[in-house]
Design a protein around this nucleic acid. Structure first.
Lengths: 197, 197
DNA sequence: GTCTATATCCCGATAGAC
DNA sequence: GTCTATCGGGATATAGAC
């Protein structure tokens, strides 16, 4: 399943990431992880204390990767609107859902402060990052002063997370795109008339 | 757990609804349902073919209830904006998430056409219902013609679904409210200047 | 580090007595 | 309609050999 040059702990973490994404924490068993990683029972428990420990390593890595990806897009060139647009239109595995956001629906993740922490931190970071861009756009006169950066940023993040829900419900990525199109139209309407990019 | 006047099948369905809401399909076992309902093993399998059969009855009822609740709010008085605002601000058990939307993150629900159908139908119905209101607002000159009803309606539904994600991530209903506030500000900006309610 | 064996419990269901 | 018994398998480890 993985390159022979990848160490056993590494294969275990990567396997856990994929299974958490596909089936969630509750739906992922140690046995399934071992089979996916091509590792034995004893091997897994030698490197990790148990399922929660391994899941924590996997979730942390997924969270970090998501922050890096988002930061690269949001830190690009262009107006505030353009950068938010880039983020909203970036390529996504829409039907698989958000590997971080989906964990909020996992009762065992939410019940554990340790497992939930990377999720909270990542979504908070993303919202603040976008809020900063909205604030920039506002001070440049691109957006109306009426917009509250934190509120708009929350709406942007929520639309993406909810877009995944609509896509998975309908079985088509188009539902995600439709929600994003609506948000972009609303954001465009909130731009001040003079300055267009 | 329930009134003695509720029949066993009824208690089983209601218990399943609550457990599906709290723990999802994968995280809900027949045994847990039986204990919650105060019913025995044999009793459950007498009234229902198995876990999927019982879950289907529970999901259908939850979906129907959600449509009725939403329809009551969306069919109220006032401008298009006012009715969408009422929907967005209606009371919710925010930290528990959406009992319908959360099912889209359940791999076994998505894998089953029968179990997924009520979810798809409900979210589609909701989007169309809201799109009709946006269309009304547009033809009344309340909203810019630039708004595409289906797109805006998808954004509204997505913001709500994503709002649940943000709330559960942060452990506070306030995150939901923030996203809604942002959306309402954007919708307000898309209203045509002359007609205000 | 990795393997197999073992343990205890739960899962989802069936069978048949009452 | 409800109960208990039973089933084959999986969940989540621990123990100890190699």
């Amino acid at each position: 399943m993985y390159s022979v040059f990848m160490s056993t702990p590494e294969r275990l973490i990567e396997s856990t990431r994929e299974l958490l994404w596909e089936r969630g924490y509750v739906g992922t068993s140690p046995k399934a992880i071992q089979q996916h990683a091509g590792a034995g029972q004893g091997s897994m428990y030698h490197h990790f204390a148990g399922k929660p420990d391994l899941a924590l390593a996997a979730i942390r890595r997924t969270a970090e990767e998501m922050r890096a990806t988002a930061d690269a897009v949001l830190g690009g060139d262009g107006s505030a609107y353009a950068r938010i647009e880039s983020y909203l239109l970036r390529e996504r595995d829409v039907l698989k859902g958000c590997p971080v956001g989906r964990l909020t629906m996992d009762p065992d993740v939410i019940a554990s402060d340790e497992l939930r922490a990377p999720v909270t931190e990542t979504l908070d970071w993303l919202r603040d990052r976008i809020a900063g861009i909205v604030e920039e756009g506002r001070s440049q006169g691109e957006f109306t002063d009426a917009l509250v950066p934190q509120d708009i940023a929350s709406t942007v993040v929520a639309t993406v997370q909810g877009g995944y829900v609509l896509a998975r419900s309908s079985g088509s990525p188009a539902a995600f795109d439709t929600a994003v199109r609506g948000l972009l139209a609303l954001l465009a309407a909130a731009r001040t008339p003079p300055a267009r990019s």
